[in-house]
Write a protein that binds this DNA or RNA. Sequence first.
DNA 1: CTAGTTGCAAAGCATTTGCCTGTGG
DNA 2: CCACAGGCAAATGCTTTGCAACTAG
Lengths: 127, 127
Amino acid sequence: MQRQTQQHRAIRAALDGAGRPLSPQEILDGARQRVRTLNLATVYRTLKRLVAEGAVQPVELPGEPPRYELRSAAERHHHHFRCRRCNSVFDLQGCVEGLKRLVPRGFRLRGHDIVLYGSCAACSSPS
Amino acid sequence: MQRQTQQHRAIRAALDGAGRPLSPQEILDGARQRVRTLNLATVYRTLKRLVAEGAVQPVELPGEPPRYELRSAAERHHHHFRCRRCNSVFDLQGCVEGLKRLVPRGFRLRGHDIVLYGSCAACSSPS
DNA sequence: CTAGTTGCAAAGCATTTGCCTGTGG
DNA sequence: CCACAGGCAAATGCTTTGCAACTAG
């Protein structure tokens, strides 16, 4: 059964407030503003439970540790953009067509991941 | 400068003989048949050099540890297909258009990864 | 109350690095 | 020769786990 602890709430709040996939460390940083004593281990344990119960969705990019986002923000089919400067990951809407063309004869296509790389708005603007 | 050590040769041979992307541990296992004393650290160091000089290409799929393949097998821009049944990874030729449409205003697009999932020819055919 | 949660520290793993020995050219 | 490469072990960095203390219900 799921207890309503302040840590638990702080972690959900951090994910909710971000609006983009966060790493466990980023979640810790965000959630600590509400619960000073929050521990990284607790973040991992809580994430595990949230993922198991479907409230949170892991976002895995090639060659990188997993990030996490609220399921509500990931309800629809979407992909991700990673900024090579600040390393943040952003949700993208929409998708592309023509993926079937890439599949060799005899293969059955069931799903796909698309990750775009570049620099985000903040990092692109000459501040 | 690149020395022609037996370890170096054994690692290249292992990659060459496999014909598919290998994990560092798989490379160690394969190359040890030629050089018994070969060390995992050496595999990592050698891979790093081979990647740096462009002889080897890392293959990173979401949520999985990196694998490595000889560049000759990955010459052109390409993407990957991972079979969810046998877990094999296949090279795909070609690419898709319309990726720019996904990018939010102000973002700069520099590159992308596409991974398709499904079942390969062997796993799709009712054997 | 009391079972589920948390904090802390230690344990795990995969990968990297320091350092001294070995060897290719 | 001798600088680069390799072996070994210790050091990382990220994630998980053991355990005693704590707290939500």
